[in-house]
Design a protein around this nucleic acid. Structure first.
Lengths: 201, 201
DNA sequence: GCACTTGCCTTACGATGTAAATTTATGCTG
DNA sequence: CAGCATAAATTTACATCGTAAGGCAAGTGC
């Protein structure tokens, strides 16, 4: 074992810590996310993580940043799929919903875990910013192609808020079965697209 | 002190516990919400709250239910203000936003505090259900008056999701200054109203 | 008046985050 | 190659938390 940890070894062990933490969170929720649990998962002593993260909050920030990154990657991959502006935007929206449903732990890490003072973690901010940009970018081609009219960033934020609000209510179990997330999203986007349709039409 | 507590005394003390808890939550966030803190605030021993709530979770549920109730009352009051269907719906939407901004602690207790297994608390469910109904009810008059066309409950849920998503992103600090909640809500509702406008118009 | 009940308190325990001291092991130096 | 400096990891310790258990004292019912 080397005396001085190389930066590669450090970031490697950080990654293992994050992976263990993610698994614990996915399986047991926030109460499973314990420094002692994470340490035990890797077979190290409870204090070892402190050589790699300043405190639990910083570790949570890293875990959340990783979730944002996975999210961005999923959306970017969907958006990069071929087709015209409309079908690419559809794919991105679909990817958003699929991500929230299939990786609910990641989704909750991003949006349900409220971490006061999380603006202090640049890595988290960067990852969240990338996700925001990914989310709103797909509106530009829709406007260029004449599907919509208006400020693309503003419309992007509205789409985001719509998706976010619906999926959060769904994941929190606040939507009944009669008006589930799918019906709401379909109707909402139909209306929004009508609402933002070019005047000429 | 009377030996046997009347139900009035019990609910009275429960209320005082909730008030203390709300204040602690509003001032110091979730980490201030401690049974010991609540007890100290009322000058009783740390175990006394257990005579009034089964455990901390039940107390949190009660506190959250009270937040839902205050929320419903604010919306209902706004909706009860005079005027036609449009201005009453406006007032309700305005009240929603004002509540989220002026009582952020209550708003977060409702929607930001995730309490796994909260369906076990009937009081919470009832209060949350009332809030949901209050939120969606104001759409009916809009349709009757010919402003909108469609399923009123579905449209109500969409309005709700839009408000919720936007305010949650705002309160979490995820909206920049350029596209703040006000711009987003204005543009979103303009578009939604256009989108749900009767076909004839 | 006496035992019982009921509300509240004190005490105690296991879990948690983390500070401080201690041990371990490695690479450098003489 | 011996020994030492030092980074890494562990052990120990403490404050705080939720809460279980048991004790105490004040009314209640006989």
């Amino acid at each position: 074992m080397p005396k001085i940890l190389s930066t590669a070894e450090v970031s490697d062990f950080r990654e293992r810590l994050c992976e263990a933490a993610e698994e614990l969170y996915a399986e047991h929720g926030m109460e499973g996310f314990t420094l002692r649990n994470v340490a035990r998962e890797l077979g190290v002593s409870p204090m070892t993580p402190y050589r790699y993260f300043h405190d639990k909050d910083e570790m949570l920030a890293a875990v959340r940043a990783r979730a944002f990154t996975r999210f961005s990657e999923a959306l970017e991959k969907a958006f990069a799929s071929g087709g015209d502006a409309g079908s690419r935007a559809d794919a991105a929206g679909e990817a958003y919903v699929r991500f929230a449903l299939e990786q609910p732990a990641d989704y909750k890490l991003m949006f349900d875990v409220s971490q006061p003072g999380d603006e202090k973690y640049p890595e988290l901010n960067a990852a969240a910013g990338r996700a925001t940009q990914t989310l709103t970018r797909h509106v530009f081609p829709l406007i260029e192609a004449g599907f919509l009219e208006g400020d693309p960033d503003l419309i992007g934020h509205i789409f985001w808020a719509t998706l976010h609000g619906t999926m959060m209510l769904h994941l929190a179990g606040k939507l009944g079965t009669q008006y589930d997330y799918r019906k709401i999203l379909d109707a909402a986007f139909t209306a929004l697209i009508r609402g933002f349709a070019p005047k000429g039409k």
